[in-house]
Design a protein around this nucleic acid. Structure first.
Length: 105
DNA sequence: GTGTTGACCACAG
DNA sequence: GCTGTGGCCAACA
């Protein structure tokens, strides 16, 4: 049952699950949170594999410029889910992204 | 051990 | 505003 993954992935998933509903975070913010400030790409990689698929709200993670970035289940799904959590999507980007963005403590 | 790939980021033009 | 380029890190062949 226990999937053998690296600590890096564990940190990524934990960070995702910390994002409250109605908020979003960025790959960069997660990277910083897990002490890998320059590995935003690796963060995206971990989510793409997503061994914790429905367990973690990975759709709340977007790119640094507020665009949705990618999504294993389809970018449309991501946009739909975010819209349903009270966020506004405008032309494939988060509206008021700066305000909706959540920072880990 | 080496090279490629990827849900990225920042900068230059 | 968009496109191209270099760089970063981890997983995979």
């Amino acid at each position: 049952m226990n999937k053998k993954i690296t600590k890096f992935e564990q940190e990524v998933y934990e960070a995702c699950s910390r994002i409250p509903l109605g908020r979003v975070s960025t790959y960069k913010d997660i990277a910083v949170y897990i002490k890998r400030p320059s590995s935003a790409r690796a963060v995206g990689n971990a989510l793409n594999r997503n061994p914790y698929a429905p367990k973690v709200p990975c759709h709340r993670v977007v790119r640094s410029d507020g665009s949705l970035g990618g999504f294993a289940l389809g970018s449309l799904k991501k946009e739909f889910l975010l819209s349903h959590e009270g966020l506004k999507i405008l032309k494939g980007k988060i509206r008021d992204f700066k305000q909706s963005r959540y920072s880990f403590e």
